[in-house]
Design a binder for these strands. Structure first.
Length: 389
RNA sequence: GGGCAGAUGGCGGAGUGGACAAUCGCACCAGACUGUAAAUCUGGCGCCUUAACGGCUACGCAGGUUCGAAUCCUGCUCUGCCCA
């Protein structure tokens, strides 16, 4: 159940409370990614000290890791992770893209170039009306469809689950995107029908790529279904990161067509600027690997800059990452950039953990400040503090 | 004093007559990362040139052999080990 608690006067931004079986998520909120039922490098205690409200795990990866037998005996994500807060699982729909079109198309879902140029790049996914067949590295096929995705998600036991969908690529044609979207709508209905448990919330996923009429059509279709909430997924393509005007136009097209009093999630986004853009367009929750992955890669987010600790200039830096930050690393340990850099250089695994703690705290703190700003009618001022240009 | 081994780009360390400005690793520089096949990947890394399959200078120093030498020869300098 979701309730809107405050509405911004100038934008579609709002604060809210998402009630799950494991508590209340104050929104707007950042959902921290823990694909394999673990937020990489962090302990369960770290999740608490970083003020994490909700974590998202992944259906496809856990299904593959656990197997049918493992799933049957699985104690549930909460117990497995030692996490008593709110959890969600993605449906596996993103893997339809990341193992499929992303590999052969050479595009990320937000445009751009292939990330691993040397790897073999054949599409390992076969999509049909029924579902999706994934070819693993041993050459075996694994079939996932709406019913199976929901069944797995019910076994995993997150508070919030996602209807099975196909995440399309920004380089997909209009014709393909339309065909895929319509199929995703059918999968959405199948996902709803496949539910057995009553204690989980389910999000339907709006697709439609970068095409306005498809996005609107998808928002209307998915928005009319009996989901507890809605997610916006797929390609943002050319709109993403553009300098002017059209940034997140997909949200302008879709959010107004979704039920006002239900939860809205933006799948797989984002960075600081994206968060503000999303919040202003009425998004309640976000999930993204940026805080955790970039932390492991040595990149630290602060209000003023993004610090790449691998740079030699931080070798003898005695300052903490961010003197204003109250995270365990900056506020309590007071670890300097030079010290943290040394840990990275020594390949000490604590480096990734400390960096992740900082970034996760940072994004959770950003959301907290956004909530306060919306309530105070000061969202614009807050945004200026975080966006220098 | 004698014997042996070795001196290569910021460091380590390949190369032992042409395809070497020189494998590779580290360090460094730049970039990427957005529902995680990612604690990862890409590019650069002698100097000049916007750049180059362009020019220049280079493999301890000085000569020599050769069409051609980081690679062979001679001497020198230095370093390590061994014997006196």
């Amino acid at each position: 159940m979701f309730e809107v608690t405050t509405k911004d006067k100038n934008t579609r931004a709002r604060t809210g409370r998402l009630h799950t079986t494991h508590g209340v998520v104050e929104t707007p909120a950042y959902v921290i990614v823990g694909t394999h039922a673990k937020v990489r490098t962090l302990t369960p205690e770290d999740l608490v000290t970083t003020h994490t409200q909700m974590i998202i795990a992944n259906t496809y990866h856990l299904w593959q890791a656990l197997g049918e037998k493992g799933l049957g005996e699985y104690p549930g994500l909460h117990q497995s992770m030692g996490w008593s807060g709110s959890l969600m699982t993605d449906s596996g729909g993103f893997q339809v893209f990341s193992f499929g079109a992303a590999r052969e198309g050479g595009a990320g879902k937000v445009g751009g170039s292939p990330r691993f140029e040397k790897e073999n790049r054949e599409n390992r996914v076969t999509i049909s009306e029924e579902g999706v067949s994934f070819l693993d590295q041993k050459g075996e096929q694994h079939f996932l469809d709406a019913e199976k995705s929901v069944a797995i998600q019910e076994r995993l036991g997150a508070d919030l689950i996602v209807a099975f969908d196909e995440c399309t690529s920004p380089v997909h044609s209009y014709e393909y995107t339309k065909e895929s979207m319509e199929r995703t709508h059918r999968w959405a209905e199948r996902s709803l029908r496949a539910r057995i448990r009553k204690d989980q919330l389910m999000l339907g996923v709006v697709q439609g790529g970068v095409f306005e009429d498809l996005r609107r059509e998808s928002a209307r279709a998915i928005g009319a279904m009996s989901f507890e909430g809605f997610a916006i997924g797929g390609a943002f393509g050319s709109s993403y990161g553009s300098e002017k005007g059209d940034t997140f136009r997909e949200l302008d097209w879709t959010v107004p067509l979704l039920p006002e009093n239900r939860h809205r999630h933006l799948l797989g986004i984002g960075k600081i600027d994206d968060i503000f853009e999303g919040v202003k367009r009425g998004i309640d929750t976000f999930d993204c690997v940026i805080p955790t992955r970039e932390a492991r890669h040595g990149a630290l987010w602060t209000r003023r800059e993004r610090i790449d600790l691998h740079k030699g200039r931080y070798q003898d830096d005695r300052e903490v990452i961010d003197s204003e930050c109250l995270c365990p690393v900056c506020g309590t340990m007071k670890l300097s950039k030079g010290e943290l850099r040394a840990l990275f250089k020594a390949e000490n695994l604590e480096a990734g953990r400390f960096a992740t703690m900082h970034n996760v705290f940072f994004f959770n703190d950003l959301m907290s400040k956004i909530r306060a700003a919306i309530k105070a009618g000061a969202l614009e001022e807050l945004e200026k503090e975080y966006r220098k240009n």
